[in-house]
Amino acid sequence: MTAGSATSEAPGIRPAPRRVPLAWLGLLPFLLFSAGFLLLPIAFLVIGSFQTSTGEPTLENYSGLGDPYIVAAFWNSVTVSLISAVGGGIGGFLLAAAVVRGGLPRPLRTGLLTFSGVASNFAGVPLALAFVFTIGNNGLITLILKDVFGVSLKATGFTIYSQLGIALVYLYFQLPLMLLIVAPAIEGLRREWREAAENMGATGRQYWRHIAFPILLPTLLGTTILLFGNAFGAQATAFQLTGGTIPLVPVVIGAQIRGDVLRNQGLGYAMAMGMVLVMGVMILVYVWLRRRSERWLRS
């Protein structure tokens, strides 16, 4: 150390106050990069959403979001996201509880968690295709239902190219994501809580109702909200599946990028902002709920 600080070239480890601005220079590459590929593009959309096509300031674009087609797109997106988030939330929690507390052999649980790490990244074209091959018109399950059980999937009214169908596909990455976040939380339930509850006369059911579930609730709610945002932002899967026949917000924005389908540049920007806003609120609520459960568990 003495040798290092003796050389005038070597920067000191503890910066003197006047050198702080200089130290910030070390972040310059990162900040420039982020500006070029993240901050400026977003800023462009933000500014554009408050401008007319000729550059005049306006709020018109946002009032344009009231257009029935756009409202329908948001409504579809919310429906799909809600179904897949609630379904993924409940299913993922049950799965996590089953593998963590159900007494299943350990390798099964490790296997499922590893698989979840992979599957939570499975979104996109291949996933949509896989479900088409499963319950699409010529899918394996569709054919088995028809040939073996004589049931026509079409006759039941279910199709993969519907809101429910999209949500079912989304579950493929929603369930694993929920599982990955909730399994550690269930593991974090301390044995002493259960014992203390039992000691005071609680049955296993009462322990879950009064203690375990309330402790997990912020995590469950928070993660479900995260799932909602996750589904809300997914474009590739939905586009591949429906080709735009069901307007979802990301699909409409995608169409707007390809050509001015909304007949208004600014409206597209406003729609993108609406999407960011929804996602942002979801993340904030998630962070808030997460803090709450961490505060509880700190003691």
């Binding site: 990162f30 993240l38 400026l40 593009p41 474009q235 995608g254 993108a272 993340i283």
Partner: peptide, 27 residues
């Protein structure tokens, strides 16, 4: 600088790819 850097690195969670590419193409 930690909060600033962390905020930027977490932004892609809030900005869906379709919105990011929208901005990138416009620029």
């Amino acid at each position: 600088a930690r909060p600033v850097v962390e905020l930027i690195t977490l932004m892609p969670f809030v900005i869906p790819p379709v919105v990011l590419v929208f901005g990138l193409i416009r620029i």
